[in-house]
Amino acid sequence: MRIDELSPDSSLGEELLTLQRAAYAVEAEIIGDDRIPPLHESLDELRSKPLRWLGAVDDDGRLAGAVAWAETAREVDVDRLVVHPGAHRRGVGRALVKEVMTRAGERPVAVSTGRANLPARTLYERLGFALRGEDEVIPGLWVVHYAFPG
C-alpha cells in the first residue's frame, strides 16, 4: 500500500465518491442513522470542498481509503476518513491518520466521528487523541470530538 496525494478533480473523483459512500454506509449502519452529510454528497459537492486529500492505494492500484482535512497555521482538522469496507482492519485508516498527524507537525489535530462509531473512536484513541466533547448536530445524531495532542 502506498499513500499518495489525491485530487477529487482528477479522474479519481468518481472512485473517491464511490469509496466515500461505501465507507459512510458502514458508519450509518454502525450508528443506526444515515443522516451523515458526506453519505449523500454529489461529486460536485465533494469537489467543492476546500480540502486536502491523501489516498491509500493498494497493490492492485485501487483506492483502499482516503483522508481529507482542512488546515490553518494553527490547526489541522480531519474532515473525513473513509476506508473501503473490504480493507477494514488492515491498517489503512491508521496509516492515513498518522500521515496527516505527521504533516501537521506541531499543530494540534482535531477530528470528529459518530458517538456510536466504536471502531473509529478506538482508532483515534489508540493514536493518542483525547475526547474533548460531544454534540447533537441534528436531533438524534450525536458526534464526539477528539484532539491530538490529548
Rank of each mutant, 00 (worst) to 15 (best):
E15V: 01
G65R: 01
R80H: 05
A28P: 03
A22C: 00
L54Y: 07
V111A: 13
G86M: 07
H88E: 07
R126V: 00
D60I: 00
G140E: 08
R89A: 15
L16C: 05
G55T: 00
L46I: 13
P85V: 02
G105V: 01
G91M: 04
A95G: 04
A147W: 08
D34N: 14
G55H: 02
T113N: 08
P37I: 03
S11G: 15
R132F: 01
E14D: 11
D9Q: 15
S7W: 06
T18L: 10
W53N: 04
V57R: 15
L16G: 04
S42Q: 13
D58M: 08
D79T: 09
L123H: 08
A73M: 14
A130L: 13
R107T: 00
A25F: 01
L63V: 04
L16M: 15
R80Q: 09
R21G: 06
A28H: 06
L17G: 06
Y146L: 10
D58G: 05
V109D: 10
V67R: 03
D79L: 03
P119N: 12
V100T: 08
T18A: 15
G133N: 13
I36N: 05
G91Q: 08
E29P: 01
S42V: 03
D34A: 12
D58E: 10
L81G: 00
P149Q: 13
